[in-house]
């Protein structure tokens, strides 16, 4: 019972916190270099693992599907199936999980440490609102980076599948692309994937900055908050993915 009340009040605090962040976002456009700096530490530093992961996921998909498809003699559809699985599902979800592990945990740890070392209090006493100057740019940067990372993940995955499927396994290059273009719909598939990644970016960034801001300001508290960020945002991404998929492809 007590745990339930605690979770409800955390959810409430998180929502109030979110509204403060959103209120702080319009004035960020006057200080856009704050956001650019955060896109660097949130997005650019997650780029590398996203590229590598996307490449391998695409290559593995191509291998697995190729052997299944040969039994039906339908290897021409390889590109289309890889593309659909990446664009609709794996791109947004896996990129969001990587993002939560790499950027989300780093965000929580950074904000938590700033709280533990009284930097946030220090800003408040300098009459600077830390939610506007510290939190909001990080949140916005996460929100901007996530769809880009998901798109990069899918694109690299398709190239990886192409290299395995066409160069290694001998699928016809023309069939690979023409099947993709015939069957992958821009609005139903690509757009829905982008919408998913936007929602995931919102959720992961929100959880990460909230956990950091709300943590107990000790080394133990920061460590726990970091773990919570990864666990909660991964679960939230998977749950939201189910909800969104159910809405989009009913």
């Amino acid at each position: 019972m007590k745990a339930l009340i605690n979770s409800v009040s955390r959810l409430g605090r998180g929502t109030i916190f979110l509204s403060k962040i959103l209120a702080g976002i319009p004035q960020l456009f006057l200080r856009f270099q704050l956001v650019v700096q955060q896109v660097y530490s949130v997005g650019v530093q997650t780029l590398f693992i996203t590229l590598i992961a996307g490449l391998f996921v695409g290559m593995v998909l191509a291998l697995q599907l190729y052997y299944t498809l040969t039994t039906f003699g339908a290897t021409d559809t390889l590109g289309m199936i890889v593309d659909l699985s990446l664009v609709r599902e794996l791109g947004p979800v896996v990129a969001a999980l990587l993002f939560a592990g790499r950027a989300g945990s780093a965000l929580t740890a950074e904000i938590g440490l700033m709280k533990a070392t009284e930097q946030l209090s220090g800003l408040e006493m300098m009459a600077v609102d830390p939610v506007h100057r510290i939190i909001a740019p990080r949140f916005l940067a996460g929100f901007i980076s996530m769809p880009l990372l998901a798109a990069i993940f899918s694109a690299v995955g398709i190239l990886g599948a192409y290299s395995v499927g066409v160069d290694l396994l001998g699928v016809d290059s023309g069939a690979f692309w023409s099947q993709i273009q015939a069957k992958v719909d821009f609005y139903d598939d690509v757009m829905n994937g982008i919408i998913k990644s936007v929602v995931f970016g919102f959720i992961v960034s929100w959880i990460a900055v909230f956990e950091g801001y709300d943590c107990i300001p000790t080394s133990e508290g920061v460590a726990r908050a970091t773990t919570r960020t990864v666990v909660h945002s991964s679960l939230a991404v998977l749950a939201m993915d189910f909800v969104l998929t159910a809405i989009m492809y009913q």
């Binding site: 896109v39 660097y40 880009l148 990069i152 694109a155 398709i158 993709i180 273009q181």
Partner: peptide, 19 residues
């Protein structure tokens, strides 16, 4: 980063779908 991201989006839109 943003450039690569937009290029990837463009590729998904143009090359990898029927748009």
């Amino acid at each position: 980063f943003v450039g690569i991201g937009l290029a990837a989006l463009f590729m998904l839109a143009m090359q990898a779908s029927n748009l």
